[in-house]
C-alpha cells in the first residue's frame, strides 16, 4: 500500500532529502581540477577547506574530493575558499551531459 502523509501539522524527521533534492536549485556547478586540488596532488589528506566551508555538508573529506550534486546548491563558497583555485563554478547550461 502506498504510504501517505498522516501528519496534521508540519512535522518531519531530520534526514537528507527531507526538503527535496536541493541540487535542483543550482545554476552554477563546482567542477574540481584534480591537477590543482591539494590532497590529490600530494596524495595525502590535506587542505579540505572546501569540506570545512561547505554550508550544506555535501563535500567529502576523501581523495579524490567529491561533491554530492543531488544537494549542492551551487553557492560557490568552496570555489571562493580553495587556495590553489582548483574549483571553477561552471554554468549548468554550459555543461553538456
Amino acid at each position: 500500500m502506498e504510504k501517505t502523509d498522516t501528519n496534521i501539522s508540519g512535522v518531519c524527521t531530520p534526514a537528507p532529502g527531507e526538503a527535496g533534492k536541493t541540487g535542483e536549485w543550482r545554476d552554477t556547478r563546482p567542477v574540481i581540477d584534480p591537477a590543482k586540488c591539494i590532497p590529490e596532488v600530494k596524495g595525502k589528506p590535506a587542505c579540505f577547506l572546501c569540506w570545512l566551508y561547505c554550508p550544506e555538508g555535501v563535500v567529502t573529506m576523501t581523495i579524490p574530493v567529491t561533491i554530492d550534486m543531488d544537494y549542492c546548491k551551487g553557492c560557490g563558497i568552496c570555489a571562493e575558499e580553495c587556495p590553489p583555485n582548483a574549483i571553477q563554478m561552471v554554468r549548468e547550461v554550459d555543461i553538456d551531459e
Binding site: 508540519g10 518531519c12 534526514a15 532529502g17 526538503a19 527535496g20
Partner: peptide, 15 residues
C-alpha cells in the same frame, strides 16, 4: 523531529 519547517508550495517526497 523538525516542527514547522518551511513548507513548499507543492507536495514533495520525503527521504
Amino acid at each position: 523531529k523538525t516542527i514547522n519547517p518551511v513548507f513548499f508550495a507543492s507536495r514533495r517526497e520525503n527521504a
